[in-house]
Design a protein around this nucleic acid. Structure first.
Lengths: 217, 217
DNA sequence: AGGAACTCGATCATCGGTGTACGAGTTGCA
DNA sequence: TGCAACTCGTACACCGATGATCGAGTTCCT
């Protein structure tokens, strides 16, 4: 009997409370877990739908070892995304959001862009594997921060109020992603990206509402 | 012998010269071909990576019949995209581009958006199936038109010249796609979309270059 | 040092998608 | 009316990915 139960019990499984990281794994296993997560990110970046075998190869280990840590492919993708977002949260939470909204926005966008550029491929993969609700849940914190800033800017009269915050948010999102895509294809230099993004978004968000108004309705 | 050779010889196969449409097919077959193309578009819209079986089901016919018209899945996707783009070209070529660049841009965006909304899912599918060069080749005409308009706007001093045309083009592209995504998820009303798009793009493109300049370098 | 935790390779069953082949039925066209 | 074109269902071979199992080796932790 005793069913040898290879490798570690998945950390993601029960856990209930969020954040309960490395339960009681061996130091060895923790390192490998981290290596797998990193490999997942880079493998997915190279090939949008990389197989578990590809990921294992990228991490320099056997495919079964990966399955030892993450029972299914979906849970692996999710864990990698969570890890990536947590890492991003560490950076973003340090960005000061007070003072002039436009300035704060500029700071936040610049910091965010790097993260978006790194994890957008992972996100795309997760979109096909995880329920949409889970994705939204994971982005809650980062998105909430940006939304709050845009809202404050509107209330203080710095950002235009004739468009809903949700649309400003979406616009910010897609322009950052677009820049990432341009960088990836070599049509845009990575160092210029933050400036290009701001050059579009700031004028668009601070436009005088009377100027181009009167359109429909 | 005589190898019964099921169904039609693919139209896409040799053909060399572009545009040589329905060679010598039976009227029946032509109708079915059109039905398959339409079904491909809607099937892909429902499920990003729909199988040939899904598409056949959507068209209400057997899977083999589809293979009769298009030898491989890739050629099917390509044909559907080509068809979609050609249809779009008919609309776009009727849009007047002279006069005030901002007004012309507004007209072109409004007309384009509907088309983008319809065929963006197809495009995404094609991106994973066809070589990037082929995709670009197909977009050449539509993209060229927009690029020329933006360039004229820059030369006449209506659009800002501190950003390359390619970046303005990309921005236009991603914002339209973003709007399509928002509509699809029900967060934005389809009728409002064109206005939302212009409300972002026009101020961004006509911004005074002196205002937010001085950034880096 | 000893036992448990962990890694690793090989192997296997399964599933879903692609593309081919056959044979019989149906339909347009001359 | 008759033939060729076309449709359609079934069946098959093939491939790649997933996930489980076994039996070893190796490595951490006490």
């Amino acid at each position: 009997m005793t069913t040898k139960r290879t490798t570690t019990r998945g950390t993601t499984a029960g856990a209930s409370a969020a954040g309960g990281r490395a339960a009681n794994q061996r130091a060895d296993a923790q390192r490998n877990r981290a290596r797998i997560l990193a490999a997942t990110a880079t493998a997915i970046r190279k090939n949008a739908d990389a197989s578990v075998a590809d990921i294992a190869a990228e991490a320099g280990m056997g495919r079964v070892t990966v399955y030892g840590h993450f029972p299914t492919r979906a849970e692996l993708i999710e864990a990698a995304l969570v890890d990536s977002l947590e890492r991003g949260e560490d950076v973003l939470s340090g960005v000061p959001l007070d003072g002039d909204p436009a300035e704060a926005f500029r700071r936040l966008v610049t910091s965010s862009w790097v993260l978006v550029d790194q994890s957008r491929a992972l996100l795309a993969a997760a979109l096909k594997e995880l329920p949409a609700a889970r994705i939204r849940e994971l982005h809650e914190k980062a998105e909430g921060r940006m939304r709050a800033l845009l809202l404050r800017g509107q209330r203080e009269g710095i950002f235009r109020a004739d468009l809903p915050v949700s649309w400003l948010l979406t616009t910010t999102h897609v322009v950052m992603n677009g820049a990432a895509e341009e960088v990836r294809s070599g049509r845009l230099d990575a160092d210029d990206a933050p400036w290009f993004i701001e050059a579009i978004l700031l004028p668009a968000f601070t436009a005088a509402t009377s100027a181009a108004g009167e359109g429909v309705r």
